[in-house]
Design a protein around this nucleic acid. Structure first.
Lengths: 109, 109
DNA sequence: ACTGGTAGCTAGTAACACTGAGTAGTGGAG
DNA sequence: CTCCACTACTCAGTGTTACTAGCTACCAGT
């Protein structure tokens, strides 16, 4: 993946995953394939799992273990209240940055 | 500054500075105050200088030393051809990410 | 002499995504 | 029955980045 993209994902990937989790609980493998399907560049599996561990430790999601028809049991992540709050903040931060960037792009001849 | 913003700036701050440099050469101190004036959160001076060193080593800018009326000589940075190319790539990456995020925001019920 | 504004620089730290590997469980093809 | 593909998760190590918290240095005004 491009180095630029890699760096730009820092700080946004977490928000992306939280956004994906909004309304529909999901497990790691599912999220990874979902992101790839939605056009996101090749997200490494390891990256997603590490991120999930992080947001779990931050208490942004609830975790439930469910048996799978295929393979080992899944860890299903559900966005909780604190996670929603974090997601709101994420959108605020994103909007701010996005607006500034758009201004720069216009002004930058 | 917010931790979220800090992480989100990773990868974008370089593009921001390159964009600022488009059309008008500037020196470090100037860029710092400019960014702050343009509404960007408290960018640390040290951050800007470190970034300038980086883009200089990458060969994205030309540097010229000019005496200042006030204080030590200024290092004026000018965007060169390679820098413009990098900036174009930055906008591409940014656009891609931005579109995906907007979709997520809408779809995110 | 001293303060404040200008201008640049540096070492150390924390956070994050990636790489590349590994461990398991299940079901189907041969 | 064995091998392989898919599912699902885990982990150690790496590179990049922005921040913190300082420092040096020059000049003008008080």
């Amino acid at each position: 993946m491009g180095k630029q993209m890699t760096e730009m994902l820092k700080g946004t990937l977490e928000g992306i995953v939280l956004a994906v989790l909004t309304g529909n609980p999901a497990y790691g493998y599912e999220i990874t394939t979902l992101l790839r399907a939605q056009g996101f560049p090749d997200i490494a599996e390891g990256t997603v799992y590490a991120l999930l561990v992080r947001i779990e430790q931050k208490g942004l999601v609830d975790v439930e273990k469910r048996p799978s028809e295929k393979g080992p049991p899944r860890k299903v992540y559900t966005l909780n209240a604190q996670g929603k709050k974090e997601l709101d903040e994420f959108w605020n931060t994103w909007s701010f940055l996005s607006e500034r960037l758009e201004e720069l792009r216009k002004g930058g001849k």
